[in-house]
């Protein structure tokens, strides 16, 4: 296979991956952020302590997190068809990716928000701030460096998931590597795909770390940026330790 044959294939695959990961990250962040914050607020001793809500959300998040993505994808097929009208292609792949990403991100948000010093919450309460003020002015801004690190982790995990989605018709780089590299023995194309993924992931990690560090260091001369553990597998080691419902 020559480069001129490979180029359009690679371009299309990259675009598809970008679309899948971009949209699903956006939805995962928009959905996971409030869920993660709610998990902290409704927990015992939280500002909106509510055991029932906390347990329900915690259970949903746990189920979402514990299902292997490939099973989630298959299980959600009917829902995907209902939303997008099809189960094949990048647009269809966005649905399970986003739904897999929401609980993943929510747990990371929970960990990040839980680390905000309770004294800050108390200080704003003493000023007469309500819960919404505390969320907007304390919890989110103070956890922002960790939230950015969490987003980086989520993006990288979703790139991994998107490759799985590719194998069942989602398209993208994973699909390309399987179809050409595995099924047609086009080893060259497969290695190029691997290289593209490696470079993309490194760039995302670098950008995420840079942003988190820049925010974290505001004012401080030194100090490590918050970084989530085990970035390659996309599984944060400590995210689930906190609360199992």
């Amino acid at each position: 296979m020559t480069w001129s044959e490979m180029q359009p294939l690679l371009e299309q695959a990259c675009t598809e991956t970008l679309i899948m990961v971009g949209w699903s990250t956006l939805i995962a962040v928009v959905g996971g952020l409030p869920l993660g914050i709610l998990l902290v607020l409704t927990d015992k001793g939280g500002l909106l302590q509510n055991t029932v809500v906390n347990k329900v959300i915690g259970q949903i998040v746990n189920i979402g997190r514990s299902l292997p993505f490939i099973i989630l994808m298959v299980a959600l097929m009917n829902f995907t068809r209902w939303v997008t009208g099809t189960t094949i292609g990048s647009e269809a792949a966005i649905v399970p990716l986003a739904i897999g990403g929401i609980p993943f991100f929510a747990r990371l948000v929970e960990t990040a928000v839980r680390e905000v010093d309770h004294g800050l919450v108390e200080a704003v309460q003493a000023m007469g701030g309500n819960t919404w003020t505390i969320v907007r002015k304390v919890l989110v801004p103070e956890a922002l460096p960790s939230l950015i690190a969490s987003t980086t982790t989520t993006v990288i995990a979703l790139i991994g998931y998107s490759a799985m989605a590719g194998t069942v018709g989602g398209g993208g780089l994973g699909d390309l590597a399987v179809r050409y590299g595995y099924q047609r023995f086009e080893t060259g194309l497969m290695w190029i795909t691997v290289a593209v993924l490696a470079v993309a992931i490194s760039l995302i990690q670098f950008a995420g770390d840079f942003a988190a560090r820049a925010l974290h260091r505001r004012g401080a001369r030194s100090g490590p940026a918050p970084r989530l553990r085990l970035l390659k597998s996309g599984e944060p080691a400590t995210a689930d330790v906190g609360k199992v419902a």
Binding site: G119, L120, A126, K137, V138, L144, R218
Partner: peptide, 13 residues
């Protein structure tokens, strides 16, 4: 009612 704290509780951001 103003309140000051032992650990200052200033927002680092």
């Amino acid at each position: 009612i103003g309140m000051v704290f032992q650990h200052f509780n200033l927002l680092s951001s």
